[in-house]
């Protein structure tokens, strides 16, 4: 008898996974992550508190001072998409902790010895993190409405917002995944996570327009994916808002950066157990 498992496909040693197998394996990971989120959603609510505090405290104060030129938008309207982007960033940037946790538990070992490609595993997890960001965004948008900020509610804008939030959450969680694979320990990760979050947030157009920044910071902000997420959300969420370069380009930039991070994370993933 030949030692080939019953049912093993003839291409068992094929180097690459078919697109269908990629989708199946990513879906399996996605389903598991969703199951966990639905089972314990407290996180979603506690994490929605901080952005709302930003809106209420920071937003109200700066609305009064009128120190920030926001065109024809009220400061709260200007800021709401920024705060939503912030929540996407903050919840996704610590995703790597979960990966390190799963490594410490041996769960990652098991995923890595399975026949699914690293890319499918990473992509499934990214999509789940993006969906988590979306669930949180819905809570924040609802609270924004309660605060009296006018948010566009036509179906097309909402779809665009949802897509942007999922893409943004997936992007930053995969960035976090990459960091986790490099630093490997929780302590180092926490240190780096703290150091990265604030610069990513402040070197973006989330709470003030790019034109207010000194030129060097404008350059940094243009390389910051968060800026593109904010642009999309500002254009779609707020009446009369405008994307600086056009939504299509913003989406393209996010998609491109996300793809890059997925490829990088897939390459580095196996290193986390070494």
């Amino acid at each position: 008898m030949t030692p080939v498992a019953p049912g093993a496909p003839p291409h068992a040693s094929a180097r690459t996974e078919s697109p269908a197998a990629f989708a199946r394996h990513a879906a399996a990971i996605f389903a598991v992550e969703m199951r966990k989120m639905v089972r314990d959603p407290t996180d979603l609510f506690t994490r929605a508190i901080q952005p709302v505090l930003w809106l209420v405290v920071f937003g109200e104060v700066f609305s009064r001072t009128r120190a920030i030129p926001t065109g024809n938008l009220s400061y709260l309207e200007f800021m709401a998409p920024g705060v939503l982007s912030q929540s996407v960033l903050f919840s996704a940037i610590f995703y790597g902790i979960a990966v390190i946790w799963e490594r410490d538990l041996g769960i990652v070992h098991k995923l890595l010895v399975s026949p699914s490609s690293r890319g499918a595993l990473v992509f499934g997890k990214a999509l789940a993190a993006g969906t988590r960001a979306l669930a949180q965004a819905l809570i924040i948008i609802a609270l924004t409405l309660v605060l009296g900020v006018h948010v566009r509610l036509d179906p097309l804008s909402l779809c665009g917002i949802a897509l942007a939030v999922v893409l943004g959450g997936a992007l930053f969680s995969t960035f976090s995944f990459v960091i986790a694979c490099v630093v490997k320990t929780r302590e180092r990760f926490m240190g780096i996570g703290q150091v990265l979050t604030m610069p990513l947030f402040f070197a973006s157009n989330a709470i003030y327009p790019l034109v207010m920044m000194p030129p060097w910071l404008q350059v940094v902000a243009r390389y910051n994916p968060l800026t593109y997420l904010v642009s999309i959300l500002r254009a779609l969420m707020v009446q009369g808002g405008m994307a600086s370069e056009g939504i299509g380009l913003d989406f393209a930039v996010l998609a491109l950066v996300f793809t890059g991070f997925v490829l990088l994370a897939a390459r580095l993933f196996a290193g986390i157990v070494r």
């Binding site: 030692p3 080939v4 498992a5 093993a8 068992a12 040693s13 094929a14 180097r15 598991v32 199951r35 966990k36 089972r39 314990d40 799963e102 410490d104 538990l105 041996g106 769960i107 070992h109 098991k110 010895v113 399975s114 026949p115």
Partner: peptide, 22 residues
Amino acid sequence: EPWGVRRQIGYVPQLLSADGAL
């Protein structure tokens, strides 16, 4: 051919690796 190997083997790591949240 690590892809071929992975299809043929099972592995229980030294760590307890079942996912407790599932």
